[in-house]
């Protein structure tokens, strides 16, 4: 049981980190696209759709990096109240994670739904790239799915802490977790 869950944890961390690397790659590619566009303009050639591609790459990097950023504590929050909850803190954390999970689950659901309908309707970008929109949209959907998984992952871990806190109710000090 323990080895399975630690194996799972390892896999998930790899997933977040992997998505983080992909996000970094997107930013790097975005730089290349923009520089190529500038240099091509200097030499009197156009790069149709360059601004659209740069936009998609940025969107992809934002959503791919979301889970990694979350896992590393990079998304910001007002932690004043939660930190003052003392031994009730795990409960507070659980509330935050559940709210975050439902909001992000909602986003992910609609990201997949919208991507599916883009694909069904054959939606194309109105820019010069004229790309089928489901392609960049599916990266968005994938990124927000991984983000949801990471929130769920943290919620489950926090639940475990909450349970052990209840078990040791009598002799425990305020419980901290690393979120």
């Amino acid at each position: 049981m323990n080895t399975i869950s630690s194996h799972m944890v390892g896999l998930l961390e790899k997933l977040y980190r992997g998505c983080g690397y992909l996000a970094a790659l997107c930013i790097f590619t975005m730089l290349v696209v923009i520089v190529v566009q500038v240099v091509m303009r200097w030499s009197g050639v156009t790069f149709p759709g360059a601004t659209n591609y740069a936009g998609y790459l940025m969107g992809a990097s934002i959503f791919l990096a979301a889970a990694y950023t979350f896992h590393e504590g990079g998304h910001i929050r007002v932690s004043l109240l939660v930190e003052r909850l003392g031994r009730l803190r795990p409960l507070g954390e659980q509330w935050c994670l559940l709210v975050a999970l439902s909001i992000n689950g909602f986003i992910t659901w609609h990201a997949f739904d919208a991507t599916y309908w883009s694909w069904r309707f054959g939606d194309v970008s109105s820019g010069q790239d004229a790309i089928a929109l489901w392609i960049p949209q599916s990266i968005f959907a994938f990124g927000s799915l991984v983000f949801t998984i990471s929130i769920l992952d943290h919620a489950i871990r926090s639940l475990a802490i909450l349970r052990s806190a209840c078990n040791h109710c009598r002799d425990s000090q305020p419980v901290r977790n690393n979120l």
């Binding site: 930013i27 975005m30 730089l31 923009i34 601004t51 659209n52 740069a54 936009g55 998609y56 940025m58 969107g59 990097s61 934002i62 959503f63 909602f106 986003i107 609609h110 990201a111 739904d113 919208a114 960049p136 949209q137 968005f140």
Partner: peptide, 20 residues
């Protein structure tokens, strides 16, 4: 409408200067 706004806002050309 949530999806369209998130999508438009996160893929806008003028915002690309920010990550750079």
């Amino acid at each position: 409408s949530m999806y369209s706004t998130l999508w438009t806002s996160s893929t806008s050309w003028t915002l690309t200067a920010l990550p750079l």
